[in-house]
Each structure stands twice: as C-alpha cells, then as structure tokens.
Amino acid sequence: MTAGTRTVGLGVEKPAAVAASAPGRNGARRRLTRARSDGLMAALQWIGPSYLIFLAIMAFPAVWNIVISFFTVSYGSDKFVGFSNYGQILGSSQFYSSLWLTIYWTASVFVGQFLLGLLLALFFNRRLWVGKFLKPLMIIPWAVPGIVAATAWTFLYSQNGPIDQVTKTLFGIAPAWLSSTTLAMPAVIIAGIWKGAPFYFLMILAGLQSIPPELMEAARVDGASRLRVLVSIEMPYIKNVLIVTSVLGLIWTANYFDGIYLITQGGPINATLTLPIWIYNTAFSDFNLSEASALSVILLVIVLILSIPAIRERRLT
C-alpha cells in the first residue's frame, strides 16, 4: 500500500473504499448516485447494535475493572487504596517468575507448533491416495475442546499411564511428569504443541498449494535441491501467510489458558503458573479480586501494546 492511501484511510481502510471516499484520487470510480457521506446517524443504524454489545461486554467491564483495581474489595466495605494493588504485584517475585514462564511457554510452543506444522504441510503437499482421507483427520487435535486435549494428556502422563509404560520398557525410567517442577512445563508445552500445530499445518499447506506448479517445475529443471526450493521459492512465496499465521498464533498462545490450567492448575509449586493462570488463581482460589483486577489491567496493557503492530499488519499487508 502506498503512503498516500495510508493517510487517507488511517491505515485501516481498504483500497476500494478509499478510492470511493476520496473522489479526487480516482474520479472515474466515484458513484454519482451517492452522497459524499451517509452521516453518522444513518451509519449507527447498521453498526450501532454491534457497538452496544462491544461497549457492554468489553469497554465498560475494562473501565470498571480499572476503577476496582484501585480499591480493596471486601465484604461490605470497599476501601480506596490507590496504587497499592499494583505495588503488591510489581513488588512480588511471582510476577517476574510468571512473566518469564509466559515467555518461556509462548516461545517454545510457537517454535514447536510452527516447525511441526511446516514439516507436516511439506509432507502432505504432494499427491497421495491417502491425503484426501488423512488431511481432515489431521486437524482433530485443534478441533477438540481444550478440556478434552487436557484430559487425554493428563491420562497419557499419569503414573503408570501409557507414557510411563513406554519409557519404563525402553529406558527403565518413569519420571513423574506432572509432579516434577522441572518436567511439568515441558510436559504442558508438548501438549500445547500437539494441540495447536494443526492450525499451522492447515494454513501453511494452503499457502504451499497456492504456489503455481510452473514455478516448482522451473526450479526442478534448473536442478535446485529440496532445501534450495524451500528457502528460495516456497518460503518467500508464502511469506504473508506465515506472518499472519504466526502473529495470530503468538497472541493465542500467550493467552492460552485451558491447556495449562486443566492439566496442572499452574502447579506443581507454581512451576507452570503463566500470567493468565495466575490471574485466574488469584481471583478464584485466593479470592483476591482486587489484585486480580490490577493484574488484568497489566495483562491488557501488555497485550494491547504488543498487538498494535499485529492489527496494522493485518490490514496493511
């Protein structure tokens, strides 16, 4: 997109709509039967209902939550405490440990999902008799609710469960995956990679299949190696798909709750207590709603700052 379009449309508009609303740029496309503006009141008849719901379920709660984060909420009396809830959080070592765990979780799961999805997509990007039958099955991990994935993995990791039986026969050891502070995080990361990889698989496969066959044929005639084709043709061609998939995947993963909470509840000894789970436990296990409110504000600010480029990316690419 050109810089000119961006200034007109605040970077959010689509080219066609921009052309229509800025007749000077492209007079031929201006519709004479239409007024220049339909007016905000007319527009509200169409977009008003959606905004009512957004205001009631998103904006108002977010603002109200900021107010509450300056109080301590207790039975009967709410006391204004200024920034003390925030001080409590920023002064506790748990905050930094949870922040680190969130980064650790997000980065590992992202890399794992991306690589697994890419490898599967590369494998299935060919003519296979079984492809038509297998491809829909491959998205099952992503299609099952988080609680089902969590149940399956809790079962697999359980003492004397299937994984224990396999490692015991092969290596003679049966580590207690979910009750070890060092192994619990890798365990939920593996489950998380399994759950989300099909999303990358599906998106990357669709991207690969949009590459014109002539391009691949030309590379083959020129004698390019498989790796060379991947690096010089396939990856650049699907760059946009990779960016959007990764941005969405990163946001989803950083905020993922079900997969961790339903397997470990953040334990053992807070070893898997990422920020979303800490918030949930603070509110619903410790019943400290005011601190949970302040934590939500902090998480919201972090997410919004991180996603501004993502929103721009989505509209501009």
Partner: peptide
C-alpha cells in the same frame, strides 16, 4: 485481539 484471559475478571465484576 482482547484476550478472554484478561477480560474474565472485568466480566466477573
């Protein structure tokens, strides 16, 4: 983009 994890406490209130 607003994550449910950050909105669950506000909604609870």
């Amino acid at each position: 983009i607003l994550p449910a994890t950050a909105m669950v406490i506000p909604l609870y209130h």
